[in-house]
């Protein structure tokens, strides 16, 4: 039997009775809760308040809601200006547009200037589905991870998104958080620890491989671990929601015990979580690695599950990769 890390207080029956919840809803509601406690919280939106769920904040605090229209460069700039007046702006748009379209503004007005903006990249990943390739952000982790003074967070369920939102508001500095449009299986609880820069080892004591995942691929990684267990392959699973800063200690400790490390992300296999792990391990603890993610191609229209299937982002893909590499 796969044993989950008791110290994480995960939901007891999330595998038998998976409940899905909206990550963006969780973000939107948490932002309102934060706004109630802290008058310095602002929300800045690029004509996508409903989709990003910044609309809840708009309805509750219209005076601290800033609509910039379809103008992502100005979105980032205005948010930075608000930050310069000692406020805490959440700049909300789709990940393809922000940071996709305003990377220079993020770089100079945001990170180089040492500002305090919370960049929210909604509708990230293939799960956007029917809107197709133009709206499926698969490169945002690569272009944010490379920037100094910027944290990069990828929550793996609604509760974690809530905690990440709270942590960002507390952190004085630049943060980027990306999440998808679809509902994610909820597997963490109120008591599950979350900290920027910390990874959670969900399943410990892998012998054959360690899967390091983020976002909705964490649930796929857990399912893969269950399937592999039945085949006599023991793997550990890490939820690495803090892509930057990376929890080097936890990752090195956990991967020390296994010959193979697999990363899984709803992102291009280049530049994202997999690359971050490879950069770490190649220098400090070289391991054989495999990368699950989108393989240097754009997505397309389709139902999220169809896209995951076609582009190789399922637990089955993780299982096959591990079996192949452990042969």
């Amino acid at each position: 039997m796969v044993e989950f890390n008791e110290k994480l207080f995960l939901r007891k029956d999330f595998l038998e009775n998976p409940v899905k919840e909206s990550v963006r809803d969780s973000f939107g509601k948490t932002l309102v809760a934060l706004g109630k406690k802290n008058k310095n919280i602002y929300a800045v939106s690029g004509d996508l308040a409903e989709s990003t769920r910044a609309i809840y904040f708009k309805e509750t605090f219209p005076e601290r809601f800033v609509e910039v229209g379809v103008a992502e460069q100005n979105l980032m700039g205005v948010a930075c200006g608000i930050s310069l007046m000692n406020k805490i702006p959440f700049a909300c748009s789709f990940a393809v547009f922000s940071p996709g379209r305003n990377w220079d503004q993020l770089r100079v007005s945001g990170c180089y200037s040492g500002n305090n903006v919370k960049v929210i990249g909604a509708h990230a990943g293939l799960n956007v589905g029917q809107d197709g390739a133009t709206h499926e952000a698969l490169e945002d982790l690569a272009i944010t991870r490379v920037l100094p003074n910027l944290n990069v967070l990828v929550p793996s369920d609604a509760m974690e998104a809530r905690k990440a939102t709270i942590a960002m508001a507390k952190h004085k500095g630049m943060d980027y958080m990306r999440f998808g449009r679809v509902d994610y299986v909820s597997y963490t609880t109120e008591k599950t620890p979350f900290q920027i820069g910390k990874a959670n080892v969900l399943i410990k004591n892998g012998k054959d491989a360690c899967i390091i995942a983020c976002g909705l691929m964490v649930y796929e990684a857990i399912k893969a671990a269950m399937i592999l267990e039945e085949k006599g392959v023991r793997v550990s699973v890490i939820n690495n929601s803090s892509v930057k800063p990376l929890d080097e200690q936890t990752i090195l400790e956990e991967t020390k015990k296994v010959p193979l490390v697999i990363t899984a992300e709803e992102h291009q296999v280049t530049g994202g979580l997999g690359s971050a792990i490879a950069e770490l391990l190649s220098q400090k603890q070289p391991k054989k690695m495999g990368f699950i993610g989108v393989q240097n191609t754009f997505g397309e229209s389709g139902k999220p599950e169809e896209l995951f299937e076609k582009y190789g982002l399922t637990s089955k893909n993780i299982v096959n990769k591990i079996l192949k590499l452990t042969e």
Partner: peptide, 12 residues
């Protein structure tokens, strides 16, 4: 970039 930031500050 500066003018956008000036706008954000003036908004506050």
């Amino acid at each position: 970039q500066g003018i956008s930031q000036a706008c954000g500050a003036a908004f506050v």
